[in-house]
Computed example of a mutant assay.
Amino acid sequence: MIGYLNLILRLTIWFLLTSDLSLANIIIGVAIALLLPRSYTSPSAIRDWLRALWEIIVAIPQAYFEALEIIFRPHNYEDITLERVKPQRTPGLIFLDIFLITFTPKTIVLKYHEEGWYEVHRVRRRQKRDSQQ
């Protein structure tokens, strides 16, 4: 089952990159998705994939809300933080995590550290009280 989810993820990325649903492009996309090497790390559980997909569905209205908030209430401050990667994540789930963080207008992943950290840039309305002193 996880193999199918990886295949669907690869095809989705291919179609988003090419923006072409012609028969030739579908055949090329399937061929590339099947030829790309697979990772032989521990397989992720179905519940991790479902949780990630649910988080993406929840992030869509959140992204609209944040976009409107940035338009009507300026965000003048920014900071860079390190966020821990959830344990035992496969490369596909790490990609979805990075996509989810970057999807919302107030955050973007600057770098993924192999030690298990995301470097995240955030914009905020106000400075934190600690940094004002």
Score class of each variant (00 low, 15 high):
Met1Leu: 07
Ile2Tyr: 05
Asn6Phe: 09
Asn6Leu: 10
Leu7Val: 08
Ile8Glu: 07
Ile8Lys: 06
Ile8Cys: 08
Leu9Trp: 10
Arg10Glu: 09
Arg10His: 06
Arg10Tyr: 07
Leu11Asn: 05
Leu11Met: 14
Thr12Ser: 14
Thr12Met: 12
Thr12Tyr: 08
Ile13Arg: 11
Trp14Leu: 07
Phe15Asp: 05
Leu16Met: 11
Leu17Pro: 02
Thr18His: 13
Asp20Ala: 05
Ser22Arg: 11
Ala24Phe: 09
Ala24Leu: 11
Ile26Tyr: 09
Ile28Pro: 04
Ile28Ala: 11
Gly29Pro: 08
Val30His: 04
Val30Arg: 02
Ala31Met: 13
Leu34Asp: 06
Leu34Met: 12
Leu35Gln: 09
Leu35Ile: 09
Pro37Glu: 06
Ser39Thr: 12
Ser39Tyr: 11
Tyr40Met: 10
Thr41Ser: 14
Thr41Arg: 11
Ser42Arg: 11
Ser44Met: 03
Ala45Thr: 14
Ile46Pro: 04
Trp49Val: 11
Trp49Ala: 05
Trp49Leu: 06
Trp49Tyr: 10
Arg51Cys: 09
Ala52Tyr: 04
Ala52Glu: 11
Ala52Gln: 06
Leu53Cys: 11
Leu53Glu: 05
Leu53His: 08
Trp54Val: 08
Ile56Glu: 08
Ile56Trp: 15
Ile56Gly: 12
Ile56Met: 15
Ile56Arg: 07
Ala59His: 01
Ala59Glu: 01
Pro61Arg: 01
Gln62Leu: 10
Gln62Ala: 07
Gln62Phe: 04
Ala63Leu: 01
Tyr64Val: 14
Tyr64Ile: 15
Phe65Tyr: 11
Glu66Ser: 03
Ala67Arg: 05
Leu68Met: 09
Leu68Ile: 10
Leu68Asn: 12
Glu69Pro: 01
Glu69Asn: 12
Ile70Lys: 04
Ile71Pro: 02
Phe72Val: 13
Arg73His: 15
Arg73Phe: 15
Pro74Glu: 08
His75Trp: 10
Tyr77Gln: 11
Glu78Ala: 14
Asp79Val: 02
Asp79Phe: 10
Asp79Ser: 12
Thr81His: 03
Thr81Pro: 00
Leu82Lys: 02
Glu83Val: 03
Arg84Pro: 04
Lys86Ser: 14
Leu93Cys: 07
Phe95Leu: 15
Leu96Ile: 15
Leu96Lys: 02
Asp97Trp: 00
Ile98Val: 15
Phe99Ser: 04
Leu100Asn: 14
Thr102Ile: 03
Phe103Asn: 00
Phe103Gly: 00
Thr104Ala: 00
Pro105Cys: 02
Pro105Lys: 00
Lys106Arg: 12
Lys106Trp: 01
Thr107Pro: 00
Thr107Asn: 02
Ile108Glu: 00
Val109Ile: 04
Val109Trp: 00
Leu110Ala: 02
Lys111Arg: 13
Glu114Ser: 08
Gly116Leu: 01
Gly116Ile: 04
Trp117Phe: 09
Trp117Gly: 00
Glu119Phe: 00
Glu119Val: 01
Val120Asn: 00
His121Met: 03
Val123Trp: 02
Arg125Glu: 09
Arg125Val: 15
Gln127Phe: 08
Arg129Gly: 06
Arg129Ser: 14
Asp130Ile: 15
Gln132Ala: 15
Gln133Trp: 12
